[in-house]
Design a protein around this nucleic acid. Structure first.
Lengths: 219, 219
DNA sequence: ACAAATTTTTAGTTTTGTCTAAATATAATT
DNA sequence: AATTATATTTAGACAAAACTAAAAATTTGT
């Protein structure tokens, strides 16, 4: 499988996670920063290889084989991200670009051993789950910070937007995965929040709060 | 720079290490398992980019810029080989194929940090020197085992042929980098050697002995 | 339900890196 | 030095993956 084919499968997989219907040509083109006509070409090719279901004008979806391939790529991408952060001192806003390259390296032993070196991590540096060898993975029990009720306490477990800008903002404000977050107050006017992160407090806009995942404390 | 361009530069660099004259189109084609006409095409392109000196029918050599690029690739290749052996339990006959892929990953921070993680190794798993960030490296003081005089003692520091077959042979016979080797006897008829490796003894053919580098003990 | 707007596909072109087959230059042999 | 052999380059073609512009299908709006 070529790099390009892998990138298409990954994009289709990610689009499929959001809305669950058939994926449109235009959506793929936008996600991949390419032209719809290029998508049509590639989708035909993937269809002939049995990796996607495709009828013209009807959108695309992954076959079982396509989904398995996509999960294998996501697995590699996320394991490499963990490696970069844990072993090579990358910050979480720096990993994506390099992992996009590393995810295409072909060697089963490489990935198995990387998994072992990292002690079989379950989540990547953005809190997203890492599929296992057979593609199995469970989404973590998480909620957007913006959905948390007043006085609720949770642990920061992930981000929805993983753009460098957002991640740098979090770094700058000392918000990291694993931090305890409490909702102290909510401003009715603009839905901004007053929160406690560990032992410091700050105000965050609704936009920030609706891109941060927390695992709510039970009790 | 594309993967293909990088592979050509690396091949030209390696050919240049053996004989020091201009490199022929055919030699490059053979090294890269491609056709001479393809080499001509690529060499023209590299020449336009200022990476090689080229006059038609006159062979090729690296410019300073081309040499620097080649050294950067060799550096990456060899650092990845160390990583695979030291951190991921690869054996020295398994590393080449995967390192060929990893060497093309583009990220300066990645390589700097990998270098640090591995504690700035000077040699790769085959005993070849790893160029520094600025391309500087010194060939180790080494000799072919076949050139060693009777009774001489040396330390195994590298291989000339790094094919999987040869490396597997060495593994099978418990010969590894760092082992002490002594030449006990030489058979005049076929130049085969009776040697001691650490605390075991064996006979090796001239062909084996002329592909194994040792650092002769001073004394 | 029909026209307008949008989405998707087709047709034809480009670039990169490869190839084959033919032509040309260099090297070797007698 | 002429001829043969070998090495190298040119010319033309192809596959992959992208693009543009135009055509066709679908969806939307009234």
């Amino acid at each position: 499988m070529t790099h390009s084919e892998e990138n298409y499968l990954k994009a289709i997989f990610h689009l499929g996670r959001q809305g669950t219907s058939a994926i449109s040509t235009n959506a793929i083109a936008e996600q991949m920063d390419t032209k719809p006509s290029s998508v049509t070409d590639m989708v035909k090719k993937l269809s002939e290889k049995g990796l996607v279901h495709y009828k013209r004008y009807q959108g695309v979806s992954l076959t079982a084989a396509g989904r398995a391939s996509a999960l294998a790529i996501v697995r590699k991408h996320r394991l490499w991200e963990v490696f970069l952060v844990e072993k090579l001192n990358f910050s979480w806003d720096e990993v994506h670009e390099v992992a996009e390259q590393l995810e295409h390296i072909k060697s089963e032993k490489l990935i198995d051993q990387l998994d072992r070196l990292l002690e079989f991590p379950k989540y990547d540096p953005h809190g997203d789950p890492i599929p296992g060898k057979n593609g199995e993975f469970q989404e973590r029990d998480k909620q957007l910070l913006s959905k948390l009720p007043l006085r609720a306490v949770g642990v920061c477990v992930g981000v929805k937007d993983s753009s460098a800008d957002f991640l740098k903002f979090l770094d700058k404000n000392n918000i990291a995965l694993g931090n305890e977050i409490e909702v102290l107050d909510r401003e009715a006017f603009d839905n901004s929040l007053h929160i406690r992160v560990g032992d410091h407090q700050l105000r965050v806009s609704h936009q920030i709060a609706s891109n941060l995942f927390v695992k709510p404390n039970e009790h």
